[in-house]
Design a protein around this nucleic acid. Sequence first.
DNA 1: CTACGTACCTGCCAGC
DNA 2: TGCTGGCAGGTACGTA
Length: 270
Amino acid sequence: MPELPEVEVTRLGIRPHVLGQRIRTAVVREPRLRLPVNADLVERVVGQVIHDVHRRGKYLLLALDTGAVLIHLGMSGQLRVLPAATPPRRHDHVDLVLDSGDCLRLHDPRRFGVLCWIDDGEKHPLLRDLGPEPLGAAFTGTMLHARSRGRSAAIKGFIMDARIVVGVGNIYANEALFRAGIDPRRAAGGVSRVRYERLAAAIRTVLAEAIAEGGTTLRDFTQPDGKDGHFRLSLAVYGRVDAPCLRCGGPIRSVRIGGRSSYFCPHCQH
DNA sequence: CTACGTACCTGCCAGC
DNA sequence: TGCTGGCAGGTACGTA
């Protein structure tokens, strides 16, 4: 489900509720996520204070006294802040119960998410090979251009590769390529530097706009307070097969690229 | 190294 | 009314 904007909206939503809170207890109802929840997670985190909530790509990190809780929402994960007494629903796998009386609750029907403990100083393999943050200074069109030389695979898959740049998933890859006027099927290695500059700018603006709108709610995603994100109303191509292109009026087409549904305007994107 | 297919898991929806 | 197949916002792994 969540791409960078939804994860950032989640971070901003939970942060004021968890900052400075001590973890009173933790409950693991279902440890079988993409990586198993540490068998000793509860004893690791109980009594520790949450000092900050960081994001790296689509990963969240709760910074505690002696380490961090690493969280990934996979396709269907949600974090909610609720009164600790709220009865758990199906697929509410982990609670961190705070001194405030609230709990931070991970809900993830498909269990592609991750919640695990990292000791201070430990380099987690999931974070090791990540590329630059798309909203940071290290992410540029020049860098995309350089990394893409010699690659014959589709540019859409290239910008969804977290080793190249983090945070761009299926929705925002489609939207950014539309904004940049680039056909998602085009070989990454054959796109010019000028066009990569346009693409980098499109990725930054689409992600920033989506964060400002509270993310994209299609079905699963909700903000930590339970509200929907509104960027769905701004989607130009994603999910709009046969609907009129907002720029030229022609029909949006759908193709599969790397096993993922892809949407584009054949008239506006080359 | 790159490229591509497959697997993980549950829920939902269209079509029969 | 079921049932079935296909699809869903992600990522890691195996194989060429």
